[in-house]
Write a protein that binds this DNA or RNA. Structure first.
Lengths: 342, 342
DNA sequence: TTGAAAGCGATACCAT
DNA sequence: ATGGTATCGCTTTCAA
């Protein structure tokens, strides 16, 4: 009465059944779908109609088994931060242009979970992987030689010979630091991301290089680092406020840290951009939304995703010996940096 | 010299090759992996060692073809907003507990792209789908009866008989409105999300119901709606400022809109929480980070994901006739709402 | 233009 | 305890 009896939800009708119902062979049905031009017009129409009518859809698993490819790409990200998701967007764009589909896997910074997706791809569930990784100690190194087609986005995977589309984090960080120096700042502190991360290391190293080049001591203030979080920014800035003289500018490892720094400064009544300058990194969405709007280093994340996917797709098409692609960062000057106080 | 000759990257060694190298049958190797207790200890050890040594990994595609299941779940989200990603997190948690893996697909609000993932699942690339959808006009309705195992998160899919883990958006919105009314507000405006979305409709409807119940006119101010964006909040509030008398409180369709509203208020010099109260919806991350911190309606997104995944997993295990699960929202009072001005 | 049949890689039933 | 074999659903020679 209620029509709820329709229990057989997904019908799972196979090419064979379609074929039988029309008294043709499975091969012919297959051809009607993949290379219709080979068929007699009449049979083709007949088959296509039946396919439509019976709601037949080829089992991609079986096809994948046969063809040894899936037209599927995985993007594996360490966290669901907007930053990494932009990379995903870029990959999607590349995939659309080249007739791939994309799915995203998430490791939650658990490196061993990268391996799950690697295995999934090795097991032919995807043709290749765009790996957005951040850790410098990578278990993947042990697996050299039994990896699926793989490219890195954002940063190279140290110890591993996979091509990457990336930015020069070190240079970006130097640009940021030099901007502050040009504004007259001399007492500049740095609060960085996780020490284990290649990216965080490079950003720190850029800060140090720029300071040293300007004959300033990069270690005048304590070496602060930790998670990319506002909490780190807040506690870090609190620590810096106990130093005498206190810094007039802070270079943060990313925008979240920078916002934490600003929160502390606001709380103790220091004017951001005047009494203390702050600069972030990444140009996340919140950077322009926040008040005051954050000076930061823009990373072309979407483009990074796009280019890394293209690298991967070329690899799948047989390209060898791919070079890394290094995209430029850009300093975005907003309201949190200003002339050093006199 | 360089060792670059190692061209055969992913090795693709099959169960057959492992079997041959040990002079056992493929069946035995298969058993060594799936039901080792059936084997003679000696052979088992011998096989496991070879598997390890040869780096053999079962082809999941072939296994999936045979077993007709993948232990894979898809989560399909309309946008990459933090809000939907929380749902994804919840699904991941459920999956970890039940030995599934999860991949995320993204439709970018393009409903037809939902179908791509539906098809992927139908084609056995996943065992089921958690669909986080928002549109009310859903093409899925045409596909009733040829859908993969499916559950909805956040909101039911109108016209479709799939179970959902959701919240009562209407009630949440009533709570928000009643909070303002209790604070003495009488001139209250509403700025909602896209009219096409079920969720936006329900939230609007909750506002109207609460207003009507308090004998206030829900249509005293123009009916404002659009994308869930700060831009809408800004322009919407600008429009409201031209009304006389202007509203003393604004109920926003979500947090982003609310922040737009606040930006405009700040710009024209009105004190938020005193001269004008603003309330959001969702309790996104930015709600507590923003200054002033946003009063809003918390949606238990992660839990929603978890519960919807559990619903799906139960369905896969054979459960029938599943009821919707309705989780409670919670009013989170922060700094953007206060007593109505006298 | 179409069909028959082999094969992709794994699993599970049926023997032994 | 182990092996042989059919099978999952599709694609693609090879023949006709």
């Amino acid at each position: 009465m209620t029509g709820r009896s329709k229990r057989k939800l997904h019908s799972n009708i196979s090419i064979k059944e379609v074929a039988q119902s029309l008294n043709v062979s499975a091969a012919t049905v297959s051809r009607a779908l993949s290379r219709p031009e080979l068929l007699n017009k009449e049979t083709r129409v007949r088959i296509l109609e039946a396919v439509e009518h019976m709601g037949y859809r080829p089992n991609l698993i079986a096809r994948g088994l046969r063809l040894k490819k899936t037209q599927l790409l995985f993007v594996v990200v360490p966290t669901l931060s907007p930053f990494f998701l932009e990379v995903f967007r870029g990959v999607e764009r590349a995939a659309r242009e080249t007739n791939y589909s994309v799915l995203m896997g998430h490791t939650n910074r658990d490196i061993s979970r990268e391996l799950i997706f690697i295995d999934q791809a090795l097991a032919q569930r995807a043709d290749g992987i765009v790996l957005v990784t951040s850790s410098s100690q990578n278990e993947l190194v042990d697996r050299q030689g039994s990896l699926p087609p793989l490219v890195a986005a954002l940063e190279t995977i140290s110890g591993l010979q996979v091509p990457a589309a990336r930015v020069d984090h070190r240079k970006g960080s130097m640009d940021a630091t030099n901007h502050l120096i040009a504004l007259g700042h001399r007492r500049i502190a740095h609060i960085g991301g996780p020490d284990m991360q290649t990216i965080a290391q490079r950003r720190r190293s850029g800060f140090e290089a720029a300071m040293t080049a300007a004959k300033l001591d990069p270690n005048a203030y304590p070496r602060l680092s930790g998670d990319y979080s506002t909490a780190l920014g807040e506690s870090g800035m609190e620590a810096l406020l106990t130093c005498h003289p206190r810094p007039t500018a802070v270079v943060a490892g990313n925008d979240e840290i920078a916002i934490g720094v600003i929160r502390t400064l606001k709380r103790v009544g220091l004017t951001v951009g005047q009494q203390v300058s702050v600069i972030g990194f990444d140009d996340q969405r919140i950077a322009s939304l926040y008040e005051p709007a954050l000076t930061t280093v823009r990373v072309p994340t979407e483009e990074l995703g796009y280019q890394s996917a293209m690298l991967l797709i070329q690899q799948l098409a047989g390209a060898e010996q791919q070079e890394d692609l290094v995209l430029p960062t850009a300093l975005v000057i907003r309201d949190t940096t200003g002339m050093a106080p006199v």
